[in-house]
């Protein structure tokens, strides 16, 4: 499944970049994130609770950040496993200035296996978009709360 989209933040690029790599900010913004811990250089372990139809369940996994081009782009590699199955994803995020705000574009691919694939593949795109939307909204409100 391929995912692509964008979000415009009302914050300067430097602040957005910082927030997107800040474990504290990520933990708060990722929907259903119960735990996010740094386990190494640019690597985190996460526990996520997802409450959407066939992909409902608690997932544990890792997030790795790679190919950082400061304030411009990075790649995110995600693996997660839960009762309904497992997912593996890879996405590239690109930041660019957009007037007084910052445009974040993402493009990535998600592979699912287990019940998620069998029962949820039709729902997966919608669910992922929903979760990504919630994530950006959460980030946005944090950026508004704390000054860059």
């Amino acid at each position: 499944m391929e995912l692509a989209g964008e979000h415009r933040f009302r914050a300067p690029r430097q602040a957005v970049w910082k927030a997107l790599l800040d474990p504290e900010a990520l933990r708060e913004a990722i929907p259903g994130c119960e735990q996010l811990e740094r386990i190494g250089e640019d690597a985190y372990s996460v526990t996520l609770k997802v409450g959407i139809a066939a992909i409902k369940g608690t997932y544990t996994g890792t997030v790795r950040i790679a190919d950082q081009q400061p304030e411009t782009s990075y790649r995110m590699l995600v693996t997660g496993e839960g009762k309904p199955g497992s997912v593996e994803g890879e996405a590239e995020l690109q930041l660019s200035e957009d007037g007084d705000g910052t445009l974040v574009r993402y493009r990535g691919e998600v592979r699912a296996r287990g019940a998620i694939a069998r029962l949820g593949s039709r729902l997966l795109t919608g669910a992922a978009k929903l979760l990504i939307g919630q994530f950006f909204k959460g980030m946005e409100s944090q950026l508004q709360r704390r000054p860059a």
């Binding site: 066939a54 296996r113 694939a117 069998r118 029962l119 593949s121 039709r122």
Partner: peptide
């Protein structure tokens, strides 16, 4: 089936 051999039609939704 997906290219990775995952069964994509595992319910009456699909």
């Amino acid at each position: 089936y997906g290219p990775d051999g995952q069964l994509l039609t595992g319910s009456f939704m699909d």
